[in-house]
Design a protein around this nucleic acid. Structure first.
Length: 842
RNA sequence: GCCGAAGUGGCGGAAUGGCAGACGCGCCGGACUCAAAAUCCGGUCUACGCAAGUAGGUGUGGGUUCAAGUCCCACCUUCGGCACCA
């Protein structure tokens, strides 16, 4: 890791805020460091690729160019210094639980211990230790072997001569595999014995040291203690290589297997003792019984059975799965009988007292690689000092304010060279600078786009300020962002990076709230139109099409995301997979079938829009055909904001017709020029119309606040349906409607506002208010149920009391008929009088 | 495999525990028209019935309740995320 760039003077007002604020401030300018890191380098693209940009074949997602792994000296941002605060401050924001959880998982905080395992005597140097990280220090007595990642520094040193060839071969094979390959093959574990042994510090047992690629070099210490009895991966590995398994935790309630069958028995201790005479009989044991048996020395008997055996077990197959839960300690010397949580604490104490280990917190979150080998991107405001030999001597200095901003040089050729040196390296005039008589080279890597997206929302507050990035008064007034609407795909990248960036600015005193985005809403993805997929026999070239084949024959064997039409193979045969028009499909029962062929099932599926599938909807085309208001309105009308939903061109036409109807409510569409309809008049609205208007105002207002745009629009459609048949349309009923509609269809709203005779925009008009009196209905229809089934309806004036309702219901003819000859048990009328339910019995 | 969300007509979707299917699409019928498009009016969960109506119905199976799409338990399916993190 590189050295700090420079110490900054601490502002006076920060000192007043206390040590914590000063510490954070100091942390915040040690956030960047240079390090040599192994990166995915794509020569064709001339850039470092993130893991997700490399496909399973180790090629770039873009262009499928070969990608190689190479070490590069890069700038990293120390986001890990903020891991805890990024985790804790999630409590402060109003985000969906699922996004919060994704961030928590991404940060991946875990608490445990680091433990040193000394190497067994025969090994190279006697002081050498292998440090491991574990979240289950309570299972230390069950550690029956160790595994190092193939990249671990000690591997070469400890490998015995007999094992060296195998170890070297394994290391080479692992290095050739891409990250994807190494993690993708979940089926079978691989590994090699190093020939070396370590000593389990808890019980002094000699345990073998293996290397395996299921242990990651990049997490923890790159080495683990393997506890196969209580870890699925370790157990799988132990089975694979016939390594010993030692159970050291027993579940609070242990189930057991008797003669190959799972049995459940509730036994008192006496019965249990009897049962234990049969070594193959183990039962369900309640926690208190375990404690009692431990006291009475029965434990050995219990563990003699096939599930948990006393000593090392030589048939690990007996464990069909590892017990990873919490319970009671066994086979753990003086710790026997301790519950897991307490044992963890005791064990850490025990290790610390003996200098064998200590408490340790780990994160999955890694530091943030911030260098890109592109021309485009913000340049780093940093200079590398040159030594006497004209090469960078490792000292880095930041540019002073007078040198800012750094602008990219004009370059005729800014394409990537195919070598790791960034294109800016070719701009020699720009690169070489002299300050205070010393020679420097500028940093030639540039920053990724995150450098802008992490704080644009702050700059937006004061975009034309050429003195500072944002006036503090404006930042104080506007931040945090009240409502942030974005896709869930940003859950762990943009939204985490921006929070980190914001916190750094907060610590430096540039913004004044710890979190940037108070409320977050994830809008759902819009999929392509629903497509109907069929299968048909054919030859390998897709010719000689034969019989249609039901898609049911392919369940689970044909990937959902197969894209364009074409030939697929399944079960040794080839089939044509194609798409069929909606008209040729019908629904029978739960499934779609080929029309008239109920035996030929068709898949109906709305795919993500993608160029290769050809189901992309171009918004410009929609705007050209139906107008921007229709596009906007349909997107809001499709369904709940957060839901994933398929596009539908017919649906756009529907809202387009709605907008057309609204237009014709106001405008005489048969006239040559835009002129008001004769039906629009300056008269007082009927009470019914007024009530409809106010109810609409209420619904639209409330739905807007709750971002339920789809139901707000349907409320307006209903109001429009109310207005359509009217011979006279009072202006007072129309003008507020235009104001309600304007946020949804702004162009139409402004046009109508103008047509109504207002010379200026409606944007500054107050939002319509509803009159609570007019929202209430004069009459209401009350359903009458008998034993929960609808039997009649009453139309009564609003405000009829529950007692009156009960009387009216019992007097109703249909009700009398329905309850004839039966005994009334009770009559239920809810306090607000929404219905009457008469409970009767024979 | 683990975690999260969701399953309601032919389709998108409505329903503070209180009339399931609002609104829109599609479809059927009618008006206008020489005709078509557009527009307007009516109908449209299923079965039986000429009808009034009766019965059933919100993924499956149980449960709570006077009353369940909604709450509880188990399961199934789909979508999204994570995926050897010790």
């Amino acid at each position: 890791k590189g050295r700090p760039i420079a110490e900054l003077p601490i502002p006076a007002d920060l000192k007043a805020k206390g040590d914590d604020a000063v510490r954070r401030f100091q942390d915040s300018h040690r956030l960047a460091y240079q390090a040599e890191v192994a990166v995915n380098w794509c020569p064709e693209l001339g850039t470092v690729l993130a893991n997700e940009e490399v496909n399973a074949e180790g090629r770039s997602e873009v262009g499928e160019f070969p990608v190689v792994k190479m070490p590069l000296r890069q700038w990293l941002l120390r986001i890990t210094a903020y891991a805890d605060r990024l985790l804790e401050d999630l409590e402060k924001v109003d985000w969906s639980e699922s996004i919060k959880k994704m961030q928590r998982d991404w940060i991946g905080k875990s608490e445990g211990a680091e433990v040193d395992f000394p190497l067994a005597a025969r090994s190279a140097s006697k002081d050498e230790k292998i440090r491991v990280y574990t979240t289950r220090p309570d299972t230390l007595f069950g550690a029956t072997y160790m595994v190092l990642s193939p990249e671990h520094a000690l591997v070469d040193q400890i490998t015995t001569p007999e094992q060296r060839a195998a170890v070297t071969a394994y290391k080479e094979a692992a290095a050739r595999k891409s990250e994807q390959e190494r993690t993708a093959q979940t089926k079978k574990k691989t590994g090699v014995f190093t020939g070396a042994y370590a000593i389990n510090p808890a019980n002094q047992k000699k345990i073998p040291i293996w290397i395996a690629d299921y242990v990651l070099a990049t997490y923890g210490t790159g080495a683990i203690m393997a506890v196969p009895a209580h870890d699925e991966r370790d157990l799988e590995f132990a089975k694979q290589f016939n390594l010993p398994v030692q159970a050291v935790v027993v579940p609070d309630e242990a189930w057991a297997v008797e003669h190959g069958k799972r049995i459940k028995l509730t036994e008192n201790l006496e019965n249990l003792k009897e049962k234990l005479q049969d070594a193959h009989a183990l039962q369900s044991i309640a926690a208190p019984d375990i404690a009692a048996m431990l006291r009475e020395g029965y434990w050995n008997a219990v563990t003699a059975g096939p599930v948990i055996r006393g000593a090392y077990i030589d048939h690990p197959d007996w464990f069909d799965s590892a017990f990873t839960g919490e319970g009671f300690a066994v086979h753990s010397g003086q710790f026997d009988g301790l519950p897991t949580a307490k044992f963890k604490a005791e064990m850490i104490k025990w290790l610390e007292e003996r200098g064998l280990g200590q408490r340790k917190i780990n994160y999955k979150l890694r530091d943030w690689l911030f260098s890109r080998q592109r021309y485009w991107g913000e340049p780093f405001p940093l200079l590398h000092e040159l030594g006497a030999d004209g090469k960078p001597n490792g000292l880095v200095r930041p540019l002073t304010e007078a040198d800012l901003p750094v602008r990219l040089p004009e370059m005729a050729d800014f394409k990537p060279s195919g070598k790791p040196e960034p294109p800016l390296g070719k701009a020699t005039e720009w690169v070489n600078v002299t300050r205070d008589g010393k020679k420097y080279k500028r940093e030639t890597n540039t920053m990724p786009q995150w450098a802008g997206s992490c704080w644009y929302y702050i700059r937006y507050l004061d975009a034309r300020n050429d003195q500072r990035f944002c006036d503090p008064a404006k930042a104080k007034y506007w931040l945090p962002v009240d409502l942030y609407v974005g896709g869930a795909e940003h859950a762990v990248l943009h939204l985490l990076y921006a929070r980190f960036w914001h916190k750094v600015l907060f610590d430096r005193g540039h913004v004044f709230c710890p979190e940037p985005f108070q409320k977050l809403v994830n809008q759902g993805m819009i999929l392509g139109e629903v497509m109907y997929r069929y299968f048909q026999e054919c030859d390998a070239e897709g010719e000689n099409r034969g019989e249609l084949v039901s898609s049911a024959s392919f369940q689970g064997s044909v990937a959902k995301d197969i894209q364009a039409e074409g030939v697929i193979s399944s079960g040794g045969k080839t089939y044509w997979m194609g798409y069929v028009a909606e008209e040729n499909v019908e629904k029978v029962g739960q499934h779609f079938v080929w029309k008239g062929r109920s035996d030929i099932r068709i898949d109906a599926y709305a795919f993500k829009m993608s160029k290769s599938r050809g189901n992309v909807i171009n918004p410009d085309d929609v705007v050209n055909e139906y107008g921007a208001d229709s596009l906007r309105l349909f997107e809001m009308f499709m369904g709940p904001l957060e839901a994933t939903k398929p596009w539908s061109m017919k649906g756009v036409e529907g809202v387009y017709r709605f907008l057309s109807r609204v237009w014709r409510l106001f405008i005489d569409d048969r006239a040559e020029n835009v002129r008001m309809n004769d039906t629009v008049q300056n008269v007082e609205p009927e009470r019914e119309t007024l009530q409809a208007l106010h109810r609409t105002i209420q619904r639209v207002t409330e739905d807007l606040d709750g971002m339920r745009f789809n139901t707000a629009i349907s409320a307006m459609m209903e109001y429009s349906n109310h207005l359509t048949p009217l011979k006279v349309r009072p202006r007072k009923a129309l003008e507020p409607f235009v104001l309600l509609l304007a946020p949804f269809a702004p162009h139409l709203g402004e046009e109508l506002w103008r047509a109504l005779g207002h010379p200026n925009t409606l944007a500054y008009e107050p939002w319509p208010k509803f009159d609570p009196e007019l929202v209430k209905a004069d009459e209401v229809e009350i359903p009458i149920q008998v034993n929960g089934k609808l039997r009649s309806k009453l139309t009564v004036p609003a405000g009829t009391t529950p007692a009156q309702l009960e009387a009216l219901a019992l007097a109703d003819e249909k009700v009398i008929a329905a309850i004839a000859g039966k005994r009334i048990i009770k009559v239920i009328v809810p306090p607000r009088g929404q219905l009457v339910n008469i409970v009767v019995a024979d």
